[in-house]
Amino acid sequence: MDWILAHLDDIGRLTARHVVLAGVPLVLGLVISLGLGWVAHRVRGLRGIALTGSGLLYTIPSLALFVLMPLVLGTSILSPINVIVAMTLYTVALLVRTVVDGLDSVPPAARQAATAIGYGPARRFVGVELPLAVPVIAAGLRVASVSNVSIVSVASLVGVSQLGDLLVDGFNRAIGGELLAGTLGCIVLALVFDALIRLGERLLTPWLHTGREASA
């Protein structure tokens, strides 16, 4: 506990970096997955390729991916960009399937009605399919956010600092308080991400929460 109180500055700085390294890829990955998922949902032939491909992507060990990134991107080995791109890939790996599942979950009647009354494919996606897929996509996003918060800590091994530093350093130097701070930090961060996603989902799906206003 003493260690934690004495290092609040460091913990704060590392937490902020952790938020960026886990959060930015989450947003980027979601946007990319929406695009890929839409294509995979619409084009039957691409569906299998997208789902298998993204599944395989997730099996690459994170450390290997972090090390590989500078070679592919031409960035410096210590650049946080490596981690952000790698984490985005992991997010995409998890979310493409979720987006496809979410679009599959749209009631066929709603999709058909949209087509029948004159929605073109793009407007139907934005106006009808995506809003109705929100619950499924949000569920996948919650898994991805926990996964990101956890995997990012490995980046300490390639010199990109965040809360994982506390774990590595605490382990090497056998400082219990430091290990505890790193672990708790990750858990709290994961819970905060989760709460934010749930809040967002709730705001985007007012039609699922109508029980109390039935007489309004």
């Binding site: 009631p107 009647a109 709603a110 058909q112 009605a113 949209a114 087509t115 029948a116 009354i117 004159g118 929605y119 073109g120 009808v128 809003p131 109705l132 799906t205 039609w207």
Partner: peptide, 21 residues
Amino acid sequence: AAELRRGIGYVIQHGGLFPHR
């Protein structure tokens, strides 16, 4: 096709309403 459909009223079983609107 989309323009044509906007000019034709369409009713399906159960109404086919958009649940989110």
